[in-house]
């Protein structure tokens, strides 16, 4: 018998604090598997966001920093500019990246910073208890859009992958999801591609991953994965939006 699935070395194995069925855990594992497979754990430096993944420095088994809300791309910039031979990634949620950190992500991309951004989009503020996010869908009920998000009041959800793909500095931009095994495989491929393109020095890389928040969506973990198919993918289409290697 040979082991075909086990904890990657790039995870510490600390028990996650995430809710049952939260797909942050799957995404953490994919990032760690890619770091293992590329053999870059000892030169990788990660930056955690403010949001549910704020404690990710306890989970990734490499040098880690914790950022102020939205500022991870600026911190990543400071590190990568000083240590261009290292591999630098940020791990950010939708409130962190697409709301309070919009300026930092947009300019990191415009500058073509050679970093990899793992953007976890679950259409809601998880850690603070289910408030509306910039990626909350029209009609979606949250604690601060209790009657459903209305375009005339709260405006429209932002499509970050499409926005950042427009920047000349972006070298690889993809949107994937982890709601079924085939999509998990595609997500891992995209993450690997992003890290490889960072190492080749081609520019800014980001994988936006549609992720489930069963707790704040008020769904079971299995229903939440279906909700991604039914509601998120129609508005946030999957695919590669930029690939300077292709």
């Amino acid at each position: 018998m040979k082991t075909v699935a086990a904890r990657p070395e790039s995870l510490t194995g600390a028990q996650y604090h995430y809710c049952p069925g939260c797909t942050h855990g799957i995404i953490h594992r994919l990032v760690a598997e890619v770091i293992d497979e590329l053999g870059i754990r000892e030169k990788t430096i990660g930056i955690c966001p403010v949001g549910c993944a704020v404690l990710a420095y306890d989970y990734f088994n490499c040098d880690m920093l914790e950022a102020a809300h939205g500022r991870a791309p600026a911190i990543a910039t400071g590190i990568k500019r000083m240590l261009p031979e290292n591999v630098v990634f940020t791990y950010q949620g939708d409130g962190d990246l697409a709301s309070i950190g919009m300026a930092e992500i947009l300019h990191a991309s415009a500058r073509g910073e050679k970093i990899t951004v793992i953007f976890v989009n679950n259409a809601v503020y998880g850690m603070t208890g289910g408030q509306m996010a910039p990626t909350t869908l029209l009609g979606q009920v949250t604690t601060t859009s209790p009657y459903g998000r209305k375009a005339e009041v709260e405006g429209y959800p932002v499509r970050m992958a499409e926005i950042l793909a427009e920047n000349e500095g972006s070298a690889y931009i993809a949107r994937t999801t982890v709601n079924k095994p085939a999509n998990v495989r595609r997500t891992k491929k995209a993450i690997k591609k992003a890290f490889e393109i960072q190492q080749k020095g081609l520019g800014f890389t980001m994988v936006e991953i549609l992720s489930a928040c069963p707790t704040n969506w008020g769904l079971s973990p299995v229903q939440a994965l279906e909700w991604i198919d039914e509601n998120m993918i129609p508005y946030y289409p999957l695919g590669e939006f930029k690939n300077k290697e292709a």
């Binding site: 930056i47 920093l65 950022a67 102020a68 500022r71 600026a74 911190i75 990543a76 910039t77 400071g78 590190i79 990568k80 500019r81 000083m82 300026a103 930092e104 300019h107």
Partner: peptide
């Protein structure tokens, strides 16, 4: 904001 956070990282 970005400048001081770049300082943080650097």
């Amino acid at each position: 904001l970005a400048a001081i956070n770049m300082v943080y990282g650097a």
